[in-house]
Amino acid sequence: MQRKLPLILVLALIPQCSWAHLVSTRFGEFYAGMLHPVLALNHLLPWLALALLAGLQPVESARRNLLLFPLAVATGTVLGCLFPESSLISQVNLLAFFSLGLLVTLALRLHQSLFTAVALVFGVIEGYGNGTLDVFGTGFLLYVAGVTVAAYIVMTITSAAANWISGHQQWGSIAVRALGSWIMAAGILYSGFLILPALQS
């Protein structure tokens, strides 16, 4: 292992460019759907915030979220693919960006039904934001499946890590809350960047 470590470090130090839209690589609609939310920060950060929040909830809530959030995302993605994009949904999405970060920062333990409702509403909105009109037939199903799998993977890994670290390390819950404050700060700035020019004009 020690002999392999330098090679692993060298590989880790050589990041490559990545794009949210696979126009040049053509990996197929499944991977396009899977990578779209993961490579776009405006989707990824609120997902991470919800996952961190799930990690701070009782285990039953977090486990239920692993099933419900991907289903909500799938529903939203189908809606987003079938109907034109709504600017209202984008603005609600911005609000979720900030408010989920705030909930993590405060480390609020929500009632199970309330947390489930938050996850479902946010999942549908986020899925809608990932919808695209460019997929048809089998490609449509593959794209929706890709986004759904990404939602499951992000939610499972991040919420499990947040749950473990906040439960097993003395500094764990502080670290999770600090990450929440970073996401909240990014949400405030990004919302301001998008909304303030419109208000000023």
Partner: peptide
Amino acid sequence: ITFPAVMAVGGLLGV
């Protein structure tokens, strides 16, 4: 935790 949150508000003023 206070610093990034308030810094974002300052950032809004800049934006």
